[in-house]
Simulated assay, not measured.
Amino acid sequence: MPRYALKIEYDGRPFCGWQTQAAQKSVQGAVEAALARLEPGLPRIGAAGRTDTGVHATGQVAHCDLTRDWNPFRLIEAINHHLRPLPVAVLACAKVEDDFHARFSAHERRYLFRVLARRAPPTFEAGQIWHVRHRLHLAPMQQAARHLIGTHDFTTFRASKCQAPSPIKTLDTVEISVHDVPYGQEFHFALRARSFLHNQVRSIVGTLERVGAAAWTPDDVKTALEARDRTACGPVSPPDGLYLTAVGYAKDPFANLDEQAQPD
């Protein structure tokens, strides 16, 4: 059975998250339903990250095994046709080796969290950005984020129901930038790691927001990390501003799209 890698974009608001759950609408379920219109009875697809309820993606990666040898361009068109009108789209498709696995072959994941700091609420991007009504200060958040870089026990920033076997993770980067928008500022938190704990990104951003608001000091973040205690964490940010933006592989399956995804 030929195996295909899919790069998927979605708005997470209508879904219970990526993973299929009984009697709830999921992104995985939507993609599987579209594939079933092409080849009924297929096994479930695998994905690089199980994003939570309301979390978005611009670079989710999944793989599927099909019985038919599809032209990747035609497969994109067919899946997207059957996904309408849901806010999910396949951006790219590539035929891959049988041992490729969207989750287990990945060596890094990248997330972006967007925060809008201004009095007026968002209009066009409501539900796609975290809105705070107070000012945030960039430099203290950047200073605080440096305490989190490297290999640590992230128990403080881990959901109580996290099923990961260990709280020890290596956070490669936390880059924070600010961009002017009408009557306010938009802050971007870009995080990169091989893998993340459940709610780790939202817990980190929620805590750093407290530093930006001058409710915490940068050293308070270091103290919270070293406490290895979930109750020491700051507020967990809402899912609105969180995006899975990229998944890294030793061999990028989408590197030669000009050759792989052209129509016959």
Rank of each mutant, 00 (worst) to 15 (best):
R228W: 04
T155F: 02
F154I: 00
S177L: 08
L38D: 07
A232R: 11
A214Y: 12
A57T: 05
V31L: 06
L35H: 04
G41L: 07
L91W: 00
R230I: 08
R103T: 03
R194D: 12
T223V: 05
H179R: 09
N71F: 00
G46Y: 10
K251Y: 11
Q128I: 00
C64I: 15
S177H: 07
F15S: 06
T170L: 04
V27Y: 03
Y4Q: 08
R74W: 09
L42N: 10
G12A: 10
I149Q: 06
L171T: 06
A164M: 06
R68H: 11
G17T: 02
P235Q: 12
A36T: 12
D98E: 15
N71L: 08
T170P: 06
P85Y: 07
A5R: 05
Q200R: 07
A23G: 10
Y111P: 01
S203L: 09
P182I: 00
V178H: 12
P14E: 02
P239V: 08
R103D: 04
Y249E: 12
Y10S: 08
P253I: 05
L244T: 15
L91D: 13
T170C: 11
S195A: 15
V181S: 05
D153I: 00
P218A: 05
A215M: 10
T231V: 11
E125I: 08
A48T: 05
H81K: 15
S166Q: 09
F157R: 01
H63F: 06
S160Y: 06
I204K: 09
T231M: 10
F104D: 05
L138F: 11
V174G: 02
E175F: 03
T173V: 12
F124H: 12
N71S: 07
G46R: 13
D98K: 14
P140R: 03
R194I: 04
Q24M: 13
K25V: 14
L244P: 14
P122S: 03
N256F: 11
A193H: 08
N71C: 13
T20I: 14
G234C: 04
H147V: 08
A250D: 15
Q262W: 01
G241N: 09
A120Q: 11
S237D: 13
D98Q: 15
S177Q: 13
H137L: 14
A102F: 00
G49V: 01
L208D: 03
A5Q: 07
Y10I: 09
D11S: 12
Q21F: 00
A159S: 14
R110Q: 07
R230Y: 08
H179Q: 11
T51S: 08
A250P: 11
E226L: 14
A22H: 14
Q60V: 01
T207Y: 04
H82K: 10
R146W: 05
E9L: 08
L112H: 15
